[in-house]
């Protein structure tokens, strides 16, 4: 494997966003790119990352390899990179280590780190293709704010999408709270658009603790997409450049 990222910052932000949810992960490398799928310990949330080969320049992977990496170790090394550094990941065919090289575009500084790999026996889940009843796209910062505001009142949030809009509501010991967003197009600032695509109304309840955690990815993309269907996990997606993405799935709270 040899994969060169223009900005080390991208990998740094991705790892920073997921490191509190999942600890040891396989980075599955093949000629289409670098993928990661991992569940949290409670099996309630799942992270699915895809960094497509096109996100790297150049990208070369001659043989499929799984790099088992402890994310807190990876974060320690990524913190040694300047945000603007060029990052090159390298690994042999049957690697014991992954090699990270950081190059400054402005100076002649070159730093090099090896991280020891681990054998991780990871359960891979098949995620079915789903036609979601509601797909909401909104500013990532808005979603983060709603989750942070509501977690002050309650552990759970009900997300209800109707043709009127999307309502985030919660109730707790001190009282209730709700935030409603309607479809909104801002011609001058399209990054503030809220778009609700609905085939049928849907209402589901989720744990806010996980949603707040997912929102650590807000710095990766201006927009977040929420996909909901009755009785299936919520998909929270942050789209990255070159069709790469960081997705989170969250199992709902069900029944009385």
């Amino acid at each position: 494997l040899e994969a060169r990222l223009e900005q080390a910052n991208l990998l740094k932000k991705v790892v920073d966003a997921i490191k509190d949810l999942v600890q040891d992960c396989n980075f599955d490398c093949n000629d289409s790119g670098i993928a990661l799928q991992a569940m949290d310990n409670s099996h309630v949330a799942l992270v699915s990352m895809m960094l497509k080969a096109e996100s790297f320049s150049p990208f070369r992977c001659d043989r499929n390899i799984a790099l088992g990496i402890n994310l807190s170790s990876l974060m320690k090394v990524l913190r040694c990179a300047q945000n603007e550094d060029i990052l090159t990941l390298k690994a042999d065919d049957a690697p014991d280590v992954v090699n990270l090289v950081f190059e400054s575009s402005e100076s002649d500084r070159l730093s090099e780190y090896d991280i020891k790999l681990m054998d991780i026996d990871q359960e891979h889940l098949g995620i079915p293709e789903t036609e979601y009843s509601a797909t909401i796209s909104m500013p990532a910062a808005e979603f983060q704010r709603i989750c942070r505001d509501l977690i002050a009142l309650s552990e759970s949030v009900a997300i209800e999408a109707t043709k009127e809009g999307v309502k985030f509501s919660c109730s707790g010991d001190i009282g209730n709270g709700a935030v409603t967003l309607r479809s909104h197009t801002n011609v001058e600032k399209p990054e503030l658009n809220v778009d609700i695509a609905l085939s049928e109304p849907v209402a589901l309840t989720f744990s806010l603790k996980y949603l707040v955690n997912f929102c650590k990815a807000s710095g990766l993309s201006g927009t977040v997409k929420l996909c909901l269907s009755s009785e299936v996990p919520l998909l929270v997606e942050y789209t990255l450049a070159s069709n790469s993405y960081l997705r989170f799935y969250l199992a709902p709270k069900i029944g009385d």
Binding site: H43, V44, A45, L46, H124, L125, G126, P233, P252, K253
Partner: peptide, 14 residues
């Protein structure tokens, strides 16, 4: 109150 489901209920092991 509603109970937290786990992902295994929805996503199969291939």
């Amino acid at each position: 109150p509603p109970k937290q489901a786990t992902l295994g209920k929805f996503f199969g092991t291939p």
